[in-house]
């Protein structure tokens, strides 16, 4: 009886150890993969928002010291005097300017609109904390093209992703 136990126990321990090692490896791979998904998603989110906002901009302002890109838009508000579908004589069409800003401070990208608090777009994800290592907007006034380079690093997998893109701003006046 003791002999059988003496053979079975080390076998069992070895098997359990192997199982635990494989399980830990799978858990680790899953963690890395999740962190990479978060990293990709955040880069894509920031760039697609930025491009979408840039397309219709009237002016583009870029600051180098704290990487910032700001867009302004010309919008109008109509003050109605009569209850009608069409614009009547007494109605006032007032020009309004709207501003949207993307700022990179302290390893994060923040988005700012008028009258709203500054919102972080990246970082603070439980599954994959990320940090911005490079955010470089460049605007070419002659061709009206905005070049954007964004590099981010995952603090969990230590993987880096760097994406450069450009957007043509047809209505830009600056």
């Amino acid at each position: 009886m003791f002999a059988e136990f003496a053979i079975a126990l080390p076998l069992l321990i070895l098997l359990m150890y192997g199982l635990a090692a494989v399980g830990m490896k799978i858990f680790y791979l899953g963690k890395i993969q999740l962190a990479d998904y978060v990293l990709e998603e955040e880069v894509h989110d920031v760039l697609s928002r930025l491009i979408y906002d840039a397309r219709a901009a009237k002016t583009v302002t870029i600051s180098k010291s704290i990487p910032t890109v700001a867009f302004t838009y010309r919008t109008t508000t109509i003050i109605w005097t009569k209850f009608s579908r069409a614009i009547a004589d007494g109605d006032v069409i007032a020009d309004k300017e709207e501003k949207r800003t993307y700022i990179s401070i302290a390893d994060k990208i923040y988005y700012e609109r008028e009258d709203t608090p500054v919102n972080p777009l990246t970082g603070d994800n439980y599954f994959g904390s990320t940090k911005v290592t490079e955010f470089k907007p460049e605007f070419d006034t002659t061709t009206k093209i905005l070049h954007v380079t964004l590099e981010m690093e995952s603090e969990i997998s230590r993987h880096k992703i760097k994406i450069s893109t450009a957007v043509y701003i047809p209505g830009c006046e600056s």
Partner: peptide, 19 residues
């Protein structure tokens, strides 16, 4: 993802010249 953004860059350049 990188390739899609590269294609967008090429489109931006072409649109600028087309203008």
């Amino acid at each position: 993802l990188t390739a899609i953004h590269l294609a967008n860059e090429q489109f931006a350049m072409m649109e600028s010249k087309a203008a």
